[in-house]
Design a protein around this nucleic acid. Sequence first.
DNA 1: GCGACAG
DNA 2: ATCTTGTCGC
Length: 270
Amino acid sequence: MAAPPERRCWEREQARLKAGVVEQDTEEWQKDPNFTGLERVGGVDLSYIKGDDTSACASLVVLSYPALQVLYEDCRMVAVTAPYVAGFLAFREVPFLVEAVQRLQQEEPKLRPQVLLVDGNGLLHHRGFGVACHLGVLTDLPCIGVAKNLLQVDGLARDELHREQIRSLQRSGDTFPLTGTSGRVLGMVLRSYNNSSKPLYISVGHRVSLDTAVRLVRSCCRYRVPEPIRQADIRSREYIRKQLCAPLEVRPARPESSKKEAELEDESDA
DNA sequence: GCGACAG
DNA sequence: ATCTTGTCGC
């Protein structure tokens, strides 16, 4: 009897917290000022259908570094079960992201990313263990949490002081640390784009230091959202848009006698 | 009790 | 996350 997924997520958090948080650079390229040796950066995202809270598109892209060209793209419709609850995003999205990474490693092992940028938080989290930490532990890949809004935790709030600190970020690349009431630095606020005053919230996910995380996200930003996540986002919503436009002709209620089925969808390992 | 709350 | 076109500005 396998434990339900929620229970396993919880146990994963407890085990990792007990073992101590891994927030240091483990790779050689992370220690290089120019990230020499870094060639592939991954990005993941889920896009949802407006009225439907169970159908989503999970996407994983791999970009070259430093050119930021798309080397790999994987979009797939998934059936989401867990509801969205702030603080429990990983319980909802992480299973599909892990599947995508495993698919990549099986089909295109040479394109395995050396680091993943994840939509959401890592250590900047109620239990110090956001979606970027979950994905990192499950894939054993360095992961960085990139959130577009502040998760209010450990005394951090979107109050006037916070807004004032944001206003103090003048140029892209400017940052200030997020220090919780506990005194711990949980993440960094980064102005990633000159044309947008809205910052990003960067935090450690797995096997990376906060300093390296911020430097890498900076170097991946053509616009406000870093390219790996932006491409995953663009491609997953485009995938959904196509699904919605042509569902009638592409999938007429399970034609059991289709001509070539082995090439498209029936690829489970029996 | 009421509001706040990554995606 | 999603609903949503054009539009004002560098």
